[in-house]
Design a protein around this nucleic acid. Sequence first.
DNA 1: CTGAAAGCGCTAACAT
DNA 2: ATGTTAGCGCTTTCAG
Lengths: 330, 330
Amino acid sequence: MAYRLKLAKSTVSRALAGSPQVGPATTARVRALAAELDYRPNVMAVSLRRGHSQTLGVVVPHLRNSFFPQLVQAIEEAANAAGYGLLICQSADDTARELQRLDLLRRAQVAGMLMSVASTTADSAPFEALSRQVPLVFVDRFLASSVVNAAVVDDLTGSYQATCHLLAQGYRRIAHLTGPQHLNIYRNRRLGYEQALHEAGLPVVPDLILPSALHVPDGKQAVRQLLSLPKPPDAIFSASDFAALGCLQALAACGIRVPEQMGVVGFSDEYFGQHTTPALSSVDQRAEVLGRRAVQLLLQLLKKPAAAPRHLIFPPVLRQRASSTRHGIV
Amino acid sequence: MAYRLKLAKSTVSRALAGSPQVGPATTARVRALAAELDYRPNVMAVSLRRGHSQTLGVVVPHLRNSFFPQLVQAIEEAANAAGYGLLICQSADDTARELQRLDLLRRAQVAGMLMSVASTTADSAPFEALSRQVPLVFVDRFLASSVVNAAVVDDLTGSYQATCHLLAQGYRRIAHLTGPQHLNIYRNRRLGYEQALHEAGLPVVPDLILPSALHVPDGKQAVRQLLSLPKPPDAIFSASDFAALGCLQALAACGIRVPEQMGVVGFSDEYFGQHTTPALSSVDQRAEVLGRRAVQLLLQLLKKPAAAPRHLIFPPVLRQRASSTRHGIV
DNA sequence: CTGAAAGCGCTAACAT
DNA sequence: ATGTTAGCGCTTTCAG
């Protein structure tokens, strides 16, 4: 505060904050000097005073595939653009660690939190307690059982489109690899798949819907299981690109040609999907949009604590590639 | 501070800090009550008082491939284990944004910083200025021109091993795709390559060393260029898995069989390398080790500001896969 | 060994 | 429209 030259620090503070109470001339003078001195308010002092920091926090399961890094990148940019730092934590898809990370964020007194729950998490109580203390927005993954602020992909529609695409390509017996049903994302992906079948007048065959951990080996295992069926499927729609990759590998190993004998579509549009043989069709969740809008929602919540929880839903985009395209369309 | 029950807050503070000045009996009593009340010191107040936060900051170019996410994951775990939060920033491999992110971290008064420089950054002056203000440790990437604290992979050795491996497989004309030479990593990778050739009594052919941006299309372009040479190479060692992937694709498109007609080895052991056809041999940088040890170094620096800058160097591991293995070894 | 008091840098009542 | 003052919650001299 080298402004002793002229004014009381409170006036300076007000001027910098753009308070209408302070004279326009003084405001200008203060601002000029601040710029000249490259003055930066001490973040800690401000935070201590305000009771929270100029930081947002986000907890994601991991940063392994391309979806979460993209999401985090978008969140970071939006946060920084709004003058907030971003504290990023990984839960390693583990509930205990997730809670620990949330506690870390709480102690860091982040102004708001974003979170994508671990796939093993089933209890919504901690989140409800937390959301009474600090604004909380879920991104992509949340517990289907809870009513919360969230920015999510319209998984159902994405899934529906993917399945319709397979049907349009002439596939008739479509299997589906799905994940834990207490997570909104996997449940909706399954529902979209079923809806498309219904509308096409096709039956939903329980044997063709395989619950799975959706990693690469699970995809391989699923192929073995599906091929051993009396009436095997002619296409596989996987709720994850990783499992879809496992499918491609297992099918190649079995000598089953994709897309001629078996169509395959994944979900998430991971980076590697463009480079498999054949290239993997997938549903692009557009993580950038999701991240940016989730931050917007959170920032709104910071201003006024919101009446009812809101859901922001964004349509995904089907990326059609060789693994599901019989007629030479790319 | 509900401890009014007994003591002055200064005593409580000391007891919690484990000061030897306070009586053991009192210390115990205070600790017991603190545990019972689940008391957490206010991070902001502590930070304001101490002049820095209980947070570390890290700037990485991006989180797109698997190396940086792995690195960040390791750093996060080590930081959290030591009671620090982690502020993660991405520079988008852009110098201007990098400086902006560093400023953000400085303003957040992180206790220490870790950083992996953007590939376009060439000026070390900002880092030198910064490192006088806050402990700074470079991870993996730093400017070859500067003397700094750093935890790095022994790129030279990794590269040397990869090239020796290709030589052992019988390849004799090995091309090398390299990146910006002002970055330690690309320079060392090139040097390791050259050293292996020297030791094998083979010439270093300038035409076979291609500077590149090392993205997938650059790899494709490189293959075209190499194949148009009067004497094309029989193997390619790329300083990046992405460029190596481009090579594999271009070679497949040209009908050149890998590894029979052309060996390919990449660098970084990206996730997708296990799933290309053929699977891509690569140098695993063991990001977890790197991240963990970098944090260790930084934490040491926080305790005592260190005499001379130190370099921690870790050996990488060659992951031998089909793309460079002529004799059926996996 | 413990207590009292000052102050980190800022903001928001409460004056003027 | 500007100044004064009282803390936010903690650590750390300086006194007992």
